[in-house]
Design a protein around this nucleic acid. Sequence first.
DNA 1: ACTGGCGATTAGGTTTCCTGATAGATAAGG
DNA 2: CCTTATCTATCAGGAAACCTAATCGCCAGT
Lengths: 300, 300
Amino acid sequence: MRKLPPLNALRAFEAAGRHLSFSRAADELAVTPGAISQQMRILEDWLGAPLFRRDPKGLSLTEAGQAALPHMREGFDRLAAGVRLMKASDGPCRVTVSVAPSFASKWLVPRLDRFQELHPQLDVYVHADMNLIDFADDDVDVAIRFGPGGYEGLISERLMSETIVPVCAPGLINGDPPLKEPDDLKNQTLIHDDSNRDGVATWAMWLRAAGVDCDGNRGPRFNQSSLVLEAAVAGKGVALARYALAVADLEAARLVIPFNYETPTDFAYWVVYPEAKAALPEVASFIAWLKAEAQEAEPK
Amino acid sequence: MRKLPPLNALRAFEAAGRHLSFSRAADELAVTPGAISQQMRILEDWLGAPLFRRDPKGLSLTEAGQAALPHMREGFDRLAAGVRLMKASDGPCRVTVSVAPSFASKWLVPRLDRFQELHPQLDVYVHADMNLIDFADDDVDVAIRFGPGGYEGLISERLMSETIVPVCAPGLINGDPPLKEPDDLKNQTLIHDDSNRDGVATWAMWLRAAGVDCDGNRGPRFNQSSLVLEAAVAGKGVALARYALAVADLEAARLVIPFNYETPTDFAYWVVYPEAKAALPEVASFIAWLKAEAQEAEPK
DNA sequence: ACTGGCGATTAGGTTTCCTGATAGATAAGG
DNA sequence: CCTTATCTATCAGGAAACCTAATCGCCAGT
């Protein structure tokens, strides 16, 4: 016989432990901080053991709390997934996907209508955001991320790998000055992408690898890859682009690769989602479609 | 932002769905049936969809309810596992194992002191029961079962395979009448084990396979394998035994195998437990130990 | 037709939970 | 040093959730 403490106290603990703050937990659950404080006292009394250390400088979890927190998260995730299954919902239902703005505009959105065709009853809500999202906070079903993979407590499935290529507007190739070989980059404006985290090629790295002796820090910088590409399309200079993002512009001849000097990267695109979300048919459909699209796009 | 219905209603649903009876759910949760009924109404109102079909002939789940139920079970399992982790408990803690009485007495209990040596701080509670148990109802962490495997919604790991052999007290071999070959069984008392489900060799099946023409239904019957073995030790006749259960008596020469005619069976011993239980260190230790012991015992 | 088992329903009481106010403690800023 | 902001703890009172007890209707098996 399963004996559980008051369930609301568990939910409060899950939120408080995740935020490491009673106030933010209270905010999330739409109650006052006092309520959370009381619930935690009740829970700790029930257990006979403390869950939080109330240090003057902030809250932290005891070992017991630390150990239990992931299970609480996973447990409530499961319940939430179950609840969504209950809402029979012959009506339209929604999949929310969190994705970086550039990947959304350059890769995902152009393909979305194909998903709509396959699943007319499903609405996709694209939540474009630079930051990693918290699946418990925001109402996000699945995320697409570019990085090294291996996201803690979540299922990560590799979508596609990526390579870095230089791109520019076609006019620059035979312009004045011309752009025929890497050394010509010394005379070009370099456009920089600051959105990439460590581990992805920068101009400085690329130039060094290509043997071009030149300061790779000149030129305009953008914090979104899509802006970088649009600047390149507008002929503002030469950019280092992630191939998957540039491919549409390359195929439309709005961009060209001046010289083929690919830099593969260990980073890849990943679909990331909490285990419990896979139980929702609409989410499962979307993930399956994503993987199929990526498969098709991958061989280039 | 995760929006959940009243958690108590979900718990009530999980119990009601599992029992397919409001009364039994009420019993389990120690409330009145009316309370369950109300909770279900609240939940269905909240969802805007029915979860149960109230047929005159009994309760059944709607499709939505059916789909959601396993998630509720799993969700509460996770929460329960988390709660157990909270109770830091440097004190002694307990692993409850459900096992058939014969296997308990003939295999598990003789080895338990070795587990105690390895984990002195852990207490093992052996819950011997013929029936399959319900992990949610009873407070059982892990079960050992003899059968075909593949238990729904639970993790099943194969412990060891099994073979069926005839056994008897040593004195019967050269007794009067003697017991030298299968045909001599016509003159012996056959002891029957009724505890085995379909698919495990009976005397009738064994005699037919061995080409002995004889009615295999004579003789005393027991509903527990351990009683069968003890009758054989006492010289009451010849029994068909599961090797794993008889091995201790064979090694001690209280029993012998009159002629080697093994019958392998597709059934095997399995450790079975809910996924969430694996998170508990004491349960994980016990399962690991079980598998190691079985490994050692298996080669015979 | 009677009886027992099961679920639905209602009114009313009990427990749980939350609020709002208050206090203490800390850190940043003037 | 004092102010302000932020955070948690605590308490009393009230709101909301929850449960009981009693009753009804329905069916099945005496």
